[in-house]
């Protein structure tokens, strides 16, 4: 339990640092952010009014307190351009992004873990070197190719070429197929590689030899004796990949015109809509920290030998 408490303290500290960073972001912009946003032609009165509305004319410590109070109360400011409340933007779009990222993680894990284990079992002790080499090079390539290329390739082939799936927009289940695939392929390849190595390591362990000596049936041997030992590393990698997915979804949302946070943050940065950019970066950062915390806590519970608990 002390481990969980330590992790939660670390999480809180990171969150505080993130809050400071997102606040500082606006102040680090060289020159006047409001002028930069409205353009050189905007009238001085408008710029001044905007500055006052944002509280930029007050002393920095006061601004920071106001910012923290706002964030804690779910108030992230309003968009320069549309006048929407950033809190509403987040509330409307976060579920869309999360559904995409979680679905992609689930698909990646469900495909990759069995695949990695299966390949490991088939290629144990240098058996079937051809299959092993094929697996390693194919997944190696799959890991390298970035999401936006998958997205473009999938759209070209499956919606423009074959017309099987809609090319853009969020609708029925079929509209999820391509975005989820574009997001999941890379991580799945990575997890499968990881899982293969971990399974090979487990298969060589003395306790697996003993389990084999007990003549356990294959499913029980692999699921009960081999799988748990592979999970620590696999989950750690998956956690890192999930945080990558949260932002990888930015690109996929952009390609598929998916109404999530990612599409909006790109717009906000291009249009210098700073309150929106600030709020969404804070949300993305917090998501990353939450995922890391959850992965750590899960590992602490799953791993009875508690290697992670010493860190």
């Amino acid at each position: 339990m002390r481990f969980a408490a330590r992790r939660i303290v670390r999480f809180a500290v990171s969150l505080a640092v993130l809050l400071v960073a997102s606040f500082a972001m606006i102040h680090l912009i060289p020159g006047d952010p409001v002028r930069a946003s409205l353009g050189p032609a905007a009238p001085v009165e408008l710029v001044e009014a905007r500055r006052q509305a944002l509280g930029l004319d007050r002393p920095v410590p006061e601004q920071f307190l106001g910012y923290v109070r706002g964030v804690l109360g779910g108030e992230f400011g309003t968009s320069f351009l549309t006048g929407e409340r950033v809190g509403d933007v987040i509330a409307a779009r976060l579920p869309v992004t999360l559904s995409l990222a979680l679905l992609a993680t689930a698909v990646a894990l469900l495909v990759a873990v069995p695949l990695g284990m299966w390949i490991a079992i088939r290629t144990e002790n240098g058996r079937r070197r051809g299959a092993e080499a094929t697996f390693t090079s194919v997944t190696g390539l799959a890991v390298t190719v970035p999401e936006f290329l998958y997205a473009i390739a999938l759209v070209s082939v499956f919606s423009i070429g074959l017309g099987w799936f809609p090319p853009a927009g969020r609708g029925g289940p079929e509209s999820y197929v391509l975005p989820v695939a574009a997001l999941a392929i890379g991580p799945a390849a990575m997890i499968a590689r990881m899982c293969r190595l971990e399974t090979l390591r487990e298969l060589a362990a003395e306790y697996v030899r003993l389990a084999r000596a007990k003549r356990l049936p294959a499913p029980r041997l692999y699921i009960r004796h081999v799988l748990p030992g592979t999970l620590t590393a696999t989950l750690t990698v998956s956690g890192l990949l999930l945080t990558g997915l949260v932002t990888g979804s930015v690109i996929v949302e952009y390609v598929f015109a998916w109404p999530g946070l990612g599409q909006r943050i790109v717009e906000a940065i291009v249009q210098k809509d700073y309150p929106v950019a600030q709020g969404l970066i804070l949300v993305y950062g917090a998501l990353v920290l939450v995922v890391n915390l959850l992965v750590d806590l899960a590992l602490g519970m799953l791993d009875p030998t508690s290697r992670i608990k010493e860190t």
Partner: peptide, 21 residues
């Protein structure tokens, strides 16, 4: 250790906001 956990694109977007497009 904290920064390693953050995905690159997020850091890049953060910097892009400050340094401009």
């Amino acid at each position: 250790n904290t920064l390693v956990a953050f995905p690159g694109l997020l850091l890049a977007m953060f910097t892009a906001v400050i340094a401009g497009l």
